[in-house]
Design a protein around this nucleic acid. Structure first.
Lengths: 198, 198, 198, 198
DNA sequence: GATGAATGAGTTTTCATTCAT
DNA sequence: CATGAATGAAAACTCATTCAT
């Protein structure tokens, strides 16, 4: 069995190598510039080899999203699971999100891309993946907000959307030029809590 | 002279026809799927004919954008200029924005795309246009919020970003499946005002 | 009949207008840049109208050559017909040719183009025209050189080619950068006569 | 290693195949008629394959040019470097040049084309190449003529231009129909030497 | 006669995917 | 398993020619 296991392990490793290479291409050339040629070159494999691990470009893209979104989700989950006061946790979440994306501008754009510049047929499959991850995240937040039930005027889902929305929007403003100041997590938290607490 | 006039009229009409066809293609095939071939087919014209009215694909896209955004901007301005209470005006603005983008999903995505795709893209020019419109809107809002100066805890620009952000975010949630309910402008208004008023 | 005549006259005039416009386009945009659109614009006529006077682009091109080559030929003929000593006439011819082309660089290139950058099927017809004019010129020179029969070691045709060749070549060198000095007709005449006289 | 070597060899061979096919297209359809489609068809490869070997049409054309000109330049250099009498060397040079271009009519035209078409053309790069080769040739000839300094009435550069001009001109006459006889190198040599020697 | 909008085949170039080795 | 040459169907754009008005 150990030969099979090793093979399995190596296969996973190769896949990861390719995914990382693809992510790099994405960061360098943007979504439209992501070609199988570039991925092959970056991963130092042949184009043919890529197809041994990913059935199509579509599949490769979907797996990129999986990889990235899982990373993000894990970090968020850790924070929300802590046993600390609402405000403290939210402050940390907001800070984390702002920090994370501020240092990962390309990742941020990447996620927006997922919602926009993708051909519709790729989109079909991609949406499922994204939704799956988003829903997981939503569930985590719902569970989190339920811990403070009674304090909010809105439903957990809505709270999640509102909070995430404020963060996303300020990041977009920051990255795309209409807001020069550093984004302060204090402001977001303040508006959010004032807005949604009973 | 009437011949010339008729020609002029017909020309404008054709342009509009093409723009509408292009908009339809956008809705059906998404941004990446928008090809001049499809536009030609959809508008029942030859590819060459499209180029009689639009110098390039880029120009066509930009005109789609302008066509739509002018409509929206005008409507927003009208609302903000009214002499009515803050809440009433904001309610109407939020309702308008939600309505508009709900019916123009692809335009909404188009605007996001412009920022996520790489700079040396077709998109460079579009970005300028979007920035121009965004800045105009920002100015209008700043002017508007200044009328109620003293009532807010934050600066006009920030108010604009927060409000727009909440709307944008809920639209994204709606379009990409994580929020099924109809978005209620009441909620947005409530959170916003509670959050930002002193 | 006078109506018919006027019509005929007007038709010729229109043709000339178009030819001159086409020549201008040629000078501005080069041979490859010569499109029917540009000719139409330059002649202030519609594209359709061009086709009333010239059956095809090919025909238009051919007529341009006719027009230009005839001009050139006439000027040369006048000189060669004079009753003056060999050297004087040749000096004047060389001077004329150098002057003419030096001030009509585009015409010079135009004639070279005729030999080169033309699609083959156009070439077929074009060649006939060019040959016709060239042969006429050749005949004039042959006749001219025969007046001085007995003095030359080579046949008139060869004399013609050698002389024309030396001029053409120095012009090419001048226009395309490998020869900076002003071309002196003296040198050409000297080499030519020393070279071909018995 | 032999696999890599074989691949390398095959790659070079393919490139050559394509270049030869392109040269054939050039001969059949002329410069303006040279399209990548035709090259693909003639070389029995797909259009895409051509682009594996040549980054652009421009590059392909330039390589055609280089391929041919290197051959010629080398042969010329060899001749001029010999330690033989002036006349013998020049005879051989003239014979070589006449032979070469007689068999490469389209290459000859290609070089003329490069200078007659407008600057903002595909041809800009080609022109540089041609100038480079021309200047090299000029230098070689200058060096050669300097060996016989004192015997000539004109400067080396002028000698080069005159000689090349006579050859060029006779070739043009041959290709475009005004001269039917075979061009004799003897005549060229005779006129040249008589004309330029003191 | 004259117009100019429309056509459609043609241009160069790109790229996901396949397959012989 | 791995390679990378080859494919072919796109893409954006051009332009000589036609034809309804």
């Amino acid at each position: 069995m150990s030969i099979k296991e090793r093979r399995e392990r190596e296969k996973k490793q190769r896949k990861k190598t390719i995914l990382i290479a693809a992510m790099n291409v994405l960061n360098e050339s943007g979504f439209t510039g992501l070609s199988m040629d570039k991925v092959a070159e970056k991963s130092e494999l042949s184009k043919g080899a890529i197809y041994l691990y990913f059935a199509s470009k579509e599949e490769l893209i979907i797996e990129i999203f999986w990889m990235k979104m899982k990373q993000l989700a894990e970090n968020i989950n850790k924070i929300l699971e802590r046993n600390e006061p609402l405000e403290k946790i939210l402050t940390e979440y907001i800070t984390l999100a702002l920090n994370f994306y501020t240092h990962e501008e390309e990742l941020f754009k990447l996620m927006l891309s997922a919602f926009t510049s993708v051909p519709h047929d790729v989109m079909q499959e991609l949406r499922k993946s994204i939704n799956s991850v988003t829903n997981q995240q939503k569930d985590v937040f719902v569970k989190f907000f339920l811990k403070f039930e009674g304090q909010f005027k809105y439903e957990p889902v809505e709270l999640f959307l509102i909070l995430r929305g404020m963060i996303t929007s300020l990041l977009m403003a920051k990255f795309f030029g209409s807001y020069e100041k550093d984004i302060e997590s204090d402001m977001i938290l303040d508006v959010f809590l004032k807005g949604v607490l009973k």
